[in-house]
Amino acid sequence: MNILDKVKSYREEENRLKWEGTFADYLNIIKERPEVAQTAHSRVYNMVKSAGVEERDGQKMYEFFGQEIFGLETAIERLVEEYFHPAARRLDVRKRILLLMGPVSGGKSTIVTLLKRGLEQFSRTDEGAVFAIKGCPMHEDPLHLIPHHLRNDFYEEYGIRIEGSLSPLNTMRLEQEYDGRIENVMIERITFSEDKRVGIGTFTPSDPKSQDIADLTGSIDFSTIGEFGSESDPRAYRFDGELNKANRGMMEFQEML
C-alpha cells in the first residue's frame, strides 16, 4: 500500500468514526455500552489496562509503557495503581494534580507523551469512544443535560453517576435552540487530538511573573459585547484556554516548579 492509499484509508476511517444524533439516541448507546460515559481517569486507566498487564516476581508490567520505558516498573505501577485506578473508581485522589518529579532524562516527558498519544488512539476505538454536546467549545459531557433532581433516578436506570453541572453556555443554548427539550439536543462523537486542541492540552509558562491566566481559562471577547449586550453573557466568552480545550481528556503543565 503506497502513501496515497494510506491517506485514503485514513480518510475513510475518519468518516467512519463520525457520529451525530440526538440526546435520546445517545442514551440508547450508553444503555448498551455504559463504558462510553466513563470519566477521564477511567478512560486512561482502561486504556493502559487494555494494552495488557503481566505480573513478574510480584511486579506488574504494563505493555502500554513496555516499548518505551525501561527500569521504571515500580514507579509506573504506583502511577497506575495508586493514582489512575482509584481515580477511575471516583475516589478523592481524582481531585489531585499528578506531579511527575525526577532527574533530567528520567522518563517523565516520555510517560506523558505516551499517555497523550495513547488517548488520541484510544478515543478512536469503540472502548474509548467519547461523545460531546455538538457545537460546545469545551466538548461538554452530554449527561450534564440531565437535571440534578433526576440524577438519582438516572443512576437507578442506567447505573451511571453524573458529576458536574451544565455550563452557562449550553444552558442558554438548551433554552434558545431546543426550547428546553434535552432529548432533542444534538450530540456528536469526538476524537482527541492535541494538534486540533480537542481533549488534550499542553501549557508551558513563558514568564511566571507576567503569565496571563487567559491562556488557561479563556477570556471575555469584548468585541462581542455590543452584539450580546453584556460581558456576563456566556456567548461573549472565548473558550480558547488550554483548560477549556483539554476538557474531558488530559492537560499537561510543563515546568511548573
Rank of each mutant, 00 (worst) to 15 (best):
G135N: 00
S9Y: 07
H85A: 11
A51S: 14
I187W: 00
Q211W: 04
K60S: 03
T204I: 08
E12L: 13
E55W: 02
V48C: 02
N244T: 00
L174I: 00
N184C: 03
D240L: 05
V44F: 10
R56M: 12
G180E: 04
Q67F: 13
T113V: 06
R235P: 02
G199V: 03
Q38R: 15
E183S: 09
H148N: 12
E63W: 05
F65C: 02
Q176R: 14
F203A: 04
W19H: 00
F239K: 13
T202R: 10
L145V: 01
I3M: 13
R56T: 12
S223H: 09
M251R: 06
K8D: 07
I220E: 07
E35W: 14
R89L: 15
I187D: 00
L114H: 04
S123G: 04
P86K: 01
E163K: 15
L17A: 01
I3H: 10
G229N: 10
R235H: 02
F65E: 01
D141M: 02
S109K: 07
L99F: 12
K60H: 01
A214L: 11
T171S: 14
Y83Q: 04
K6C: 04
M250I: 15
I133P: 04
L17W: 01
H85K: 13
H148Y: 13
G159H: 03
T204L: 10
M186N: 06
N170F: 05
R151K: 12
D221G: 13
P103R: 11
V104S: 14
V130F: 06
K134Q: 12
P103D: 11
N244E: 00
I225Y: 11
N2H: 11
R94S: 13
F222G: 05
K18T: 08
V48Y: 00
F239D: 09
E163L: 14
V36Q: 10
L145E: 00
G128N: 11
V7S: 03
E183Q: 07
L169T: 05
S206M: 05
G226F: 09
L257G: 14
M61G: 04
Q211I: 09
E255Y: 08
Q254S: 08
L145H: 00
V198P: 06
P34H: 07
R117P: 04
E163R: 15
L91M: 15
Q176T: 14
R181G: 05
R33C: 03
R161V: 08
Q121A: 14
T224W: 07
G58C: 02
Y45S: 04
A129H: 11
F222H: 12
D212L: 08
N184V: 02
N46A: 03
A40V: 01
I213C: 06
G107A: 01
V104E: 10
K209I: 05
R117A: 10
G102K: 01
K18Y: 09
K95G: 11
G249C: 11
G21R: 03
R33W: 05
F64I: 05
F192L: 08
F239G: 07
K6S: 07
R11V: 09
I146W: 03
H149N: 14
K134I: 06
T39D: 14
I213S: 13
A37T: 01
G199Q: 02
N244C: 04
G229V: 11
K196M: 08
R235V: 03
D5T: 09
K196F: 05
R189N: 04
D195L: 08
